[in-house]
């Protein structure tokens, strides 16, 4: 929709001008697919991040670096190294968008993360794969924060005013783990009610379970090795009390808890090789 209060749309490099001052009503523009989808009456100026011309995807020995401006369609088309056993999680999370493939052609990974809905699939992906985000302040200084710590709740993230998400780094070690994915929706191909991913090299190796969409922010549980069903259930109930499950029109809290526990156990069984 038209954003009728916006008075200026400029390339993001405008902020590098010496006399530039970030002020109330300023906002970064990534893909625009969320920004333009709802009224934004507080926004006066938009700064288009594409101006930076960041390389969308960089594969290295260290892992995968995803620029915040990488489009979902570009990420979905990634040809990952064969030993990245967890790479299919990336495609699964792209497909977890409620949004059409046409939106993927413009929407960005960083935009989805910074918009921050519980059902943001890029948050699910990054948190599950233990990504580290690089945040950049207006003065060019950078800091790192884990994906799990960055997302604080619906539409709330750890960005300071004027700060931007520069890149999402997924460590190669995590990408080389085996991984399992489960997702619950109320309609076919709909918005996520629960999205659960587990990763582990082997049953006797560390086991990491990330619960998202069903909680206001991702919840990550790490075990030195695959837990038993009872241990996993206890850990989830411990980490997420009954009243801490997310509540909105895409699923009741009780249902989100129910499906999260159900899928968590399936994932555990899958990665633990059936060991109870």
């Amino acid at each position: 929709m038209n954003l009728n209060t916006v008075q200026e749309l400029r390339g993001a490099r405008a902020v590098e001008q010496p006399d530039f001052a970030w002020r109330e009503g300023d906002s970064w523009l990534a893909g625009g697919t969320w920004l333009y989808s709802e009224p934004q009456v507080g926004i006066r100026r938009l700064f288009d991040l594409r101006d930076f011309g960041w390389e969308p995807l960089e594969v290295s020995a260290a892992g995968l670096r995803i620029a915040a401006t990488c489009r979902i369609a570009e990420l979905y088309a990634l040809a990952a190294p064969e030993d990245w056993l967890a790479a299919p999680m990336i495609g699964e999370c792209c497909r977890a968008f409620l949004a059409s493939f046409k939106i993927w052609n413009e929407a960005t990974v960083g935009g989805n993360i910074c918009m921050s809905l519980p059902a943001s699939p890029m948050t699910s992906m990054a948190a599950s794969l233990e990504a580290i985000y690089t945040l950049r302040a207006l003065d060019g200084s950078e800091r790192q924060i884990s994906a799990v710590d960055f997302t604080l709740g619906p539409h709330v993230v750890a960005l300071e005013p004027g700060e931007l998400l520069r890149a999402i780094d997924i460590p190669a070690d995590v990408l080389r783990r085996r991984a399992a994915f489960r997702r619950s929706t109320l309609t076919h191909l709909g918005r996520s009610t629960a999205l659960i991913i587990g990763t582990s090299h082997a049953p006797d190796q560390p086991f990491v379970l990330t619960i998202s969409a069903s909680t206001p922010r991702p919840v990550q549980l790490s075990f030195p090795q695959a837990p038993t069903a009872a241990e996993l259930r206890a850990a989830i109930n411990d980490a997420i009390p009954d009243d801490a499950w997310f509540d909105d029109v895409h699923g009741s809290p009780a249902y989100r808890q129910h499906m999260s526990l159900h899928y968590a156990e399936q994932i555990r069984a899958e990665l633990a090789g059936g060991a109870a």
Binding site: M1, L29, G31, Y36, S37, E38, L46, K102, I103
Partner: peptide, 27 residues
């Protein structure tokens, strides 16, 4: 819908389909 949900505004930009209600015109 003007919100990217219904697809009635689909056009192609350089041959790629997009929801035109979500794309800044200047792009």
């Amino acid at each position: 819908c003007d919100q990217g949900d219904c697809g009635a505004c689909t056009v192609w930009v350089e041959g790629t389909p997009v929801h035109s209600c979500l794309m800044p015109a200047m792009r």
